[in-house]
């Protein structure tokens, strides 16, 4: 069955992800919080700028790992939720469908629209994002970048494949590794991510 991404986004966006009486947002087995996109950009870009291009990859690798854990655990929480069972599982008939559904579900968190360009089952996933927040900000603040700055989407791309084709949760994390092969911050017209074993 082909996955209807629009329908998944519509279903997902109707979920009430809201703070409880203690001001804490617990959803899908994780604690969520909302913050300004510019806050994240400022924190990370200032660290990178302070470190310089030689040392920056070390911190970006740590941030990639943090997002990988974020994506892996959050998306697992999503795919085991009652909501997923009720509304999404009836649409799924293969691990590939699950990858498409998870990518679609990502499109409610406010991080820019991610979509699949190519999926080779159990081998490779290529995703693209046309409107990530950070690349344009890097261009404005720091000029053209020497390599891609969207570690967040790289790690998400790997996490979908880890969940669909890696060992059973929670052992499959890190089965796939993703790289950003083009980025708007480098002057490309699109951000593109490739996850492979």
């Amino acid at each position: 069955m082909a996955i209807d991404s629009k329908k998944i986004i519509e279903i997902a966006s109707k979920l009430q992800i809201a703070s409880n009486e203690k001001g804490i947002m617990a959803a899908f087995g994780v604690y969520a919080a909302m913050n300004y996109n510019e806050f994240y950009f400022k924190v990370v870009s200032r660290v990178i700028h302070t470190l310089g291009d030689l040392k920056a990859p070390t911190v970006e690798q740590k941030l990639y790992n943090a997002v990988l854990e974020c994506g892996y655990h959050t998306f697992h929480g999503i795919r085991t939720s009652m909501h997923w069972r009720e509304h999404i599982i009836p649409m799924l008939s293969s691990p590939e469908d699950e990858v498409y559904a998870l990518v679609a579900f990502t499109n409610i968190f406010g991080i820019g629209y991610i979509e699949i360009e190519e999926l080779i089952p159990n081998k490779k996933l290529v995703t693209i994002v046309k409107n990530a927040y950070d690349p344009e900000r890097y261009l404005i603040e720091y000029g053209k970048q020497p390599y891609g700055r969207c570690y967040m989407f790289s790690a998400c791309t790997a996490s979908y494949m880890d969940l669909a084709y890696g060992e059973k949760y929670p052992k499959g994390i890190g089965t796939f590794e993703a790289k950003e092969v083009s980025c708007r911050s480098m002057g490309n017209n699109i951000c593109r991510f490739v996850a492979e074993r």
Binding site: N37, C70, F109, N131
Partner: peptide, 29 residues
Amino acid sequence: FSPELNILKLDNVGVSLHCHHYNCGLIKA
């Protein structure tokens, strides 16, 4: 929320939702 763009705005300012794995991982990193 703009579903075609996956953009969330809180009182017209762009925001995003992230989990504690990332938010705390960012501090730790």
